[in-house]
Design a binder for these strands. Sequence first.
DNA 1: TGAGATAAGTTTAGGCATCAAACTTATTGG
DNA 2: CCAATAAGTTTGATGCCTAAACTTATCTCA
Lengths: 379, 379
Amino acid sequence: MRRHNSALVLDAIAAGPGSSRAAVAARTGLTKATVSSLVDRMIGAGLVVEGEAQARPGPGRRGTALHLSPSGPHGLGVEIGVDYIATCLVDLTGRVRKRWLRPSDNRASSPGRVLAKVATAVRTAVREEVPIGGLGVAVPGLVESASGTLRVAPNLGWREVDVRGELDRRIGLDVPVLVGNEANLAALAELWHGDGAADFVHVSGEIGIGAGIVVDAQLFEGVSGFGGEIGHLPVDPRGPRCPCGSRGCLERLAGQDEMVRAAGVSGPEELLTRLAAGDRTALMAVRSAAKWLGVALSAAVNLLDLPTVVLGGTYARLEPWLREPLEAELANRVMSAEWAPVRVVASSLGAEAAVRGAAGGAVRAILADPDPYVASVLA
Amino acid sequence: MRRHNSALVLDAIAAGPGSSRAAVAARTGLTKATVSSLVDRMIGAGLVVEGEAQARPGPGRRGTALHLSPSGPHGLGVEIGVDYIATCLVDLTGRVRKRWLRPSDNRASSPGRVLAKVATAVRTAVREEVPIGGLGVAVPGLVESASGTLRVAPNLGWREVDVRGELDRRIGLDVPVLVGNEANLAALAELWHGDGAADFVHVSGEIGIGAGIVVDAQLFEGVSGFGGEIGHLPVDPRGPRCPCGSRGCLERLAGQDEMVRAAGVSGPEELLTRLAAGDRTALMAVRSAAKWLGVALSAAVNLLDLPTVVLGGTYARLEPWLREPLEAELANRVMSAEWAPVRVVASSLGAEAAVRGAAGGAVRAILADPDPYVASVLA
DNA sequence: TGAGATAAGTTTAGGCATCAAACTTATTGG
DNA sequence: CCAATAAGTTTGATGCCTAAACTTATCTCA
């Protein structure tokens, strides 16, 4: 009962920062008395702080503003990329306190060695002297989220790695550890920090192509966490062979590597300069990727009836060149398109989305069900 | 609180019919005292009945078996087909008490005239003298389930029909009215009465092709209830024009009408006899439909990672001829297929699934949240 | 400047569902 | 027929919520 209502109240405060107790009561349908007692508990636990009394138009006592505490528990996010390890520390409101990025060729290292680096990164962040409420880890592969096990990460060459267990062992931190697929966490970050859309596919093009599907403000994980794995949708049955064993996979036709190869450049940075300069080969390469992306996305959009496509990762920066051909392809293939066209937008977080999602996920767990945390602090 | 626990307890009784109060307590984690009081309430409201005391292996008092009451509130389901109106009455356990089927060319009638017939069907069922706890209506079109409004039903030629409102007006029955898409309700029926699979796509081929997607024992409705509308997935970009305005829609290539046309027969019945007789044209027609079906289903299966495809409606009876080419197509196109092949099974309910789903949905609403019903009965 | 009006937030008394533990009832087996 | 065992009920305590009265703070108007 209290558990449920605590979540309700905290959610109201998060949704409307600066609300008074009375406003929260009106919003949640609880009585002022109940809200008062729950809020006091959460202030005691350091989740909520009181702010200035707000002005009001007419007569009457002014309400005291309530906010999520910026010095409350922080979420620590780590992203294990193919060639880097990114870390960031966010507070309850989602603001980034500090971030780190260190290059690391994880493809060439064993899981053990990489996780040791992750542990070092975590220890560095812990030195910031802010309370850590949870740890989130984003990995570019298939994750069984319940156990925190990485089943397979093709682009790292890893299989069956008990990420949660390993990290629990390597860092003495007694906090919940969330392990998630990089694309899924990026989609969640977009949900929390984006333009407010609650239904979309978020495609992030890094070395691989991942998609996170958000329906009704909830991540759609699919049956075995495999949901939304769009990278290996076979878009061209007669296309080139893919390391996964199939033919004409999206990733093979629209991934970063393929764009770079087709454009004849050294990497994504050069690709961007060439595009800006109007280089014909580069433009063609991106246009072709957009077309294949459109084929795969239209299947998702048709089936799940999603109104929005968010371009994340490398695709975010390529948006000016991707958008038009992608929208054309979608308009052609999506059945409800002429009635309600699919919106294509660039992610506001870009390549940073995954870490932000990992860090956010760690604190969101507290926000979604604060009572256990409150109880543990007050005990 | 009580509301939540009532649902918990009733769910335990439904899942394990014949359990004792003590067993339910163990299963739900509530105390025996709490379970006793909740069960007594539900017995009072006529949802639950006590059965014989069960034998037990050792010493100790025997528990009294608890069952969902077969004389409790019944669900009344009505299906508005293109050329028939089907009705059925089911009890809390899902057993069919009685069913009706009357031919009716609904394509040629106005919504008002058809809904008048539905009202008559409802009145007939009410004469059975069993308590009606809810009414479910299955329609072959796009439904906004919250309001009970039919947005559009291409195969009936209807648009914007307030089905719930109209029926509320025409029948004096004061019960909740559930309006749902025929394919979605059929999928739910399969979930409740099928072989226990909790994740599948259910495709039903009637005049149109509808799909219901069930993930984690929950119907996936999509953003605007449009989810899983597979009938107009464009499977062949260069295919024939479809009344919907697009080209090469699945429905146009694999629907009942197309199979019948391609086989050169008068209707589905004749198609079946010809198939049984080994008629070459009929076999080819079905094989082609299976191929297109495979194209559309593989997109769904890839994206949602579903392990099972259920053939419903007319397809259920065609399963012996559909299965092999369909499985071949899926094996080819589904990425995870060689690792975990997609199972193709025939629906156990066939053409009856939609009515069953409508009737079941009406009572499930009570099972899922019994307290309001209990309160209203005891008041 | 002060009384009246208005609204925020707190206190208090009461209700209701749950739980733990004691108790009653039913059954088996020596 | 009595000890052991388990189902189900009764009882008293606890915790959380609510309604309603109360206190505090602020504005407005005379």
